[in-house]
């Protein structure tokens, strides 16, 4: 499947990536090449095949409902690019 630049821009926006004008063409070509590789799988009929999400047929373990964690705010906020009064700061959120 070939992609055009508008689609590439749409995907980039969904993924929150910025693609400059100068990159757009190459990115489009590369992704189109990869999609061609991927499309090889379309040659096989898989109508009756169950999708496989996990290699092993195992089920989810459950965790006992206990509080096991302590306050780690100071440690974790040392990693933050911007924080104040215990909050992570980001450019204004508009909704």
């Amino acid at each position: 499947m070939a992609l055009d630049k508008t689609e590439v821009e749409k995907i980039a926006h969904l993924a929150r990536l910025h693609i400059s004008e100068s990159e757009a063409e190459e990115v489009t070509t590369r992704i189109t090449d990869i999609l061609t590789l991927i499309d090889q799988m379309q040659s096989v009929d898989t109508e009756a095949v169950e999708p496989l999400a996990h290699p092993l047929d195992v089920v989810q373990r459950l965790r006992v409902d206990e509080v096991t964690e302590e306050n780690q705010r100071d440690t974790l906020q040392q990693l933050a690019p911007a924080s104040e009064d215990g909050l992570y700061l980001v450019p204004k959120v508009l909704d």
């Binding site: 965790r63 409902d65 206990e66 509080v67 096991t68 964690e69 306050n71 780690q72 705010r73 974790l76 906020q77 009064d85 215990g86 909050l87 992570y88």
Partner: peptide, 29 residues
């Protein structure tokens, strides 16, 4: 009204100081 979060052992108590009930999983480390 569980005591701990859906996927981590952090407390769900109402009204705590900001980010004091957010562990490494809740902060998506």
């Amino acid at each position: 009204s569980t005591k701990s979060k859906l996927f981590s052992g952090s407390s769900t108590e109402f009204g705590a100081e900001p980010n004091t009930q957010a562990n490494i999983f809740d902060c998506a480390l």
